[in-house]
């Protein structure tokens, strides 16, 4: 058990190192703005005084290493700076919107994982049959689908034409359905492809033959095969979570979903770089955390995996 804790600590440390790297990237990002960063952030109409004020409050007049350490220090105090657009603390802007993004990401993942696994299992157990061909088509179509287009199509069909769900917003429970499906389709496709490939392998393993030799229903054998296929499936779930977050930016825009993805697009359009920095950092942190969680789940799924 202490070994497990040591492992978690080690994973957390590498996660933190990665995030420190991300901080360096977002600090450099502002430095890299063409021309005078303070001018860009303050806006074209800003008076020289306003520009100077932005430069000073963001510490842009100091060497970049100092800015980096200052950003880290502020981060430790939960301070992500002040939004150039609204004047609010970036942390509170993100704080009010993050739950929506988390909700969407979780629902999208759940949709993708459940349907992806189901589709992959169906394809593997019906290999070479029409079910398999259809599942493969759905798989390759899913990874080729532009989420923004899919989102609009779903809106047109289900919200405008059939009027089954609201067009946009996050007001009611049913308004969750279309965005979650839109966001989850890519995950579904990736997970189904991985599930099929791994299940084709595990279904023919000796231990599954042993299960069949016991005289059980085929679905019991499939369950054994699936349990053993879970490690690679978990791995893709973790890896595609990054893509899912990218998709969330677009999905939120399409559905006017009040999460941090939409905030990111708005902040970029208004050159609100303190907000952009904070949001990008938040997305990276979400990715790192999810991948630590999937790593930890390995040992739950497979007793042979020693994490330490």
């Amino acid at each position: 058990m202490s070994g497990l804790i040591a492992y978690i600590v080690r994973r957390l440390v590498t996660g933190v190192i990665t995030l420190v790297g991300v901080v360096a990237v977002v600090v450099l990002m502002v430095q890299a703005l063409p021309g005078d960063p303070a001018r860009v952030i303050a806006g074209i109409q800003a008076t020289p005084q306003q520009v100077a004020k932005v430069r000073h409050t963001m510490g842009l007049d100091e060497p970049v290493t100092v800015q980096f350490w200052r950003y880290l220090e502020n981060l430790l105090h939960g301070n992500l700076g002040i939004s150039a657009r609204t004047g609010d603390p970036v942390s509170s802007l993100i704080g009010t919107r993050l739950p929506y993004t988390v909700e969407l990401a979780i629902l999208g993942t759940v949709f993708g994982v459940i349907f992806g696994i189901a589709l992959g299992v169906l394809a593997a157990t019906h290999k070479g049959k029409i079910t398999d061909a259809l599942a493969s088509m759905v798989g390759v179509a899913g990874v080729s689908m532009p989420v923004y287009w899919l989102g609009i199509l779903l809106i047109v069909v289900f919200a405008v034409d059939l009027k089954l769900v609201p067009v946009s917003g996050a007001a009611t429970l049913s308004s969750l359905i279309l965005p979650s499906v839109t966001l989850g389709v890519f995950s579904m496709a990736v997970v189904s492809r991985m599930t099929r490939a791994t299940m084709l392998d595990t279904l023919d393993q000796d231990y599954v033959r042993t299960v069949r030799a016991k005289g059980v229903a085929e679905r019991v054998a499939v369950r054994h095969a699936l349990r053993n296929a879970f490690i690679p499936i978990l791995t893709v779930i973790g890896l595609q979570f990054g893509t899912l977050l990218g998709g969330a930016v677009l999905t939120e825009t399409v559905f006017s979903w009040p999460g941090i993805g939409q905030l990111l697009v708005a902040s970029i359009s208004s050159r609100d770089f303190p907000a952009v920095q904070g949001i990008v950092l938040t997305f990276a942190a979400m990715f790192v955390i999810v991948n630590i969680i999937t790593d930890l789940l390995y040992s739950v799924v497979d007793p042979r995996v020693r994490l330490y």
């Binding site: 990054g242 990111l264 990715f287």
Partner: peptide, 24 residues
């Protein structure tokens, strides 16, 4: 590999989005 890890934690779309945010 550390640098790659950092880049991977953004994912292709966010990385590209940041770059156009900066460079237009």
């Amino acid at each position: 590999q550390r640098i790659t890890d950092i880049m991977l934690s953004f994912n292709p779309f966010l990385l590209a989005l940041m770059l156009v945010a900066v460079f237009g």
